[in-house]
Simulated assay, not measured.
Amino acid sequence: MQATPFCLRVGHLLPYSMSGSNTTEFTNPSTFILLGIPGLEAAHVWISIPFCTMYIIAILGNFTILFIVMTEPSLHAPMYYFLCMLAVTDLVLSTSILPKTLSIFWFNSREIDFSACLTQMYFMYSFSAMESGIFVAMAFDRYVAICDPLRHSTILTNPVVAKISLAVVLRGGVVILPIPILASQWPYCTTNIIPQPSCLHIAVVNLACANTHVSSYYSLFVIFCVMGLDGIFITLSYTQILRAIFSLPTKDARLKTFKTCGSHLFVISAFYIPGVFISLMNRFAQNVPLYFHVLIANVSFLMPPMLNPIIYGVRTKLIRDRLLRLFTHKGA
C-alpha cells in the first residue's frame, strides 16, 4: 500500500512509500492509531527532546513578541500588526501538532479520535495557509515602505490593515475547509494505522477504500492557488524592493534599507525552503528511509514557529531594544 503525506508546502506533495503490513479489517473507525516515527520507536524519548525544545522556544518567543508589540506604542504600526498575526498563527500551528506528538513519544498515547484527527488536519493546513498569506501582506508592507515611503501611512491605514488581515484569515479558513470535509466522507475499511505522528492529509485519505481523486485534485488546487500565487506575489514584491535598494546613491543607504527587510527574507526562507528541500528529496532520494521523510516533514512544520520570533527579535532593532530595556529594567 502506498501513502502520500500532504502538506501545503509543496515538498510534501510528492510520494514516498511506507509499509502497509499493519492492517486489520473493520468498518469506519472511531479512532486512528498514530505510529509516531516508524522505525525509530525505541528512540522516541530522545527525539522528543529537540521537539519539546522547539515547542518551548516557539511558545516563549511568540508570546514575547506579542507582549512587546502590545506594550510598546512605537511598535503600533502595520509591520508589527502583521508580526503579531504571524506570532498567533505560529502559536496555533505548533500547538495543533506538538502536544499530541509529545504524548506519543512520552506516554505511547497513539490513539486519536476520528473527528480530532480531522480537526488537527484542518488547523495544520489552514494556519499554514494563513502564514503564507501573512508573508504576502508583510512583503506588500515592505514594498510600500521602501518603494513609496511618503505614501506608506496613507496606503496602509489601520482599516486597510484590518481588511488585509481579515482576508488572510478567511482565505486560509475557507480554502482549507473542504480538505477535512472530503476526508470525512470516505469509507475507511482496511486499516486505521497512520505511520505519522500527526494527521497529514493524504496519509489519512490513502487509508480510504474508495476513489479519493477528488481529495487529491483539490489538494493540488490549494497548492497552486495558495502557495503558488503567494510565492509569485512575494517574488514580485521583493524584486521591486531590491531594484529600489540598488538604485540608492550610497552604499550606507543601501545597507540600511536592506536591513529593514532582511528579517522578512529570513523568515520567508525558513518557511519555503524546507518545502523545496523535501520536494527534491522525494524526487531524487527514493531510497531514503521512511523515518527520515517523516522527521523532515514534521520539522518543516515546527521550524518556522521557533525561528520567526528569534529572527525578528535579533534583527529588528525596535523589538531588540525594547526587549533589552525590559530585561535591564527587571535586572535593576
Rank of each mutant, 00 (worst) to 15 (best):
D252K: 11
Y122V: 10
S128H: 00
R142S: 12
T23A: 13
L170M: 15
N22V: 00
F51D: 01
M79Q: 14
V136I: 12
M1N: 11
L156I: 01
H293K: 03
H213W: 13
G231Q: 13
S96H: 08
P78A: 02
A137I: 09
F271R: 00
G133Q: 14
A167I: 00
A167K: 02
G331E: 13
A167E: 00
T212F: 05
S96K: 12
C225K: 02
P78K: 08
T191P: 04
S19C: 05
F266L: 14
T190Q: 07
Y125H: 13
I202E: 12
R254D: 14
I164E: 02
I194W: 08
L242Y: 06
M18E: 06
V214Y: 15
H44Q: 03
V288R: 06
R283H: 15
R315H: 06
L156V: 03
S215G: 05
L220T: 13
V299I: 15
K100S: 03
G172C: 10
V144C: 09
P289E: 04
C261W: 05
I65W: 09
V10A: 12
Y143V: 08
Q196A: 11
F26Q: 15
L255W: 10
R142K: 14
G36R: 06
W106M: 10
I296P: 03
G228D: 14
L242E: 11
S109C: 02
M85N: 04
D113Y: 09
P73H: 03
T89R: 05
H44P: 07
G275D: 08
C84V: 01
F123I: 09
I37P: 00
F233I: 12
P304H: 11
V204M: 02
I57R: 01
S115A: 14
Y125I: 08
S269H: 01
T23H: 13
P15F: 02
K259L: 15
V144A: 10
I68C: 09
C225E: 10
I97M: 08
Y143G: 07
K256A: 14
T53A: 13
V205R: 06
L35V: 05
I194P: 02
I155S: 04
K251N: 11
I164C: 10
L220K: 10
S109W: 02
A137G: 10
V136K: 04
P149F: 00
P78T: 03
S21G: 12
P249V: 05
M54D: 10
H329N: 08
G39T: 06
I311C: 06
Y122C: 09
F271H: 09
T212N: 02
V222M: 15
T250Y: 08
L60V: 11
I268R: 04
L182E: 09
Q196G: 02
G61L: 03
I57N: 07
L248V: 04
L200Y: 09
G331Q: 12
H152V: 00
G39W: 09
Y218E: 12
M306Q: 08
D230K: 00
R283M: 15
S74Y: 01
P305I: 08
I319Q: 03
K330F: 11
W106G: 07
I278Y: 01
A116Q: 10
L290D: 13
I57S: 06
L170I: 15
M85F: 07
Q240L: 07
V175Q: 05
G173T: 11
P29R: 13
R110F: 01
Y122S: 13
L207E: 13
I245A: 11
L177A: 15
L83P: 01
A58Q: 04
L86P: 12
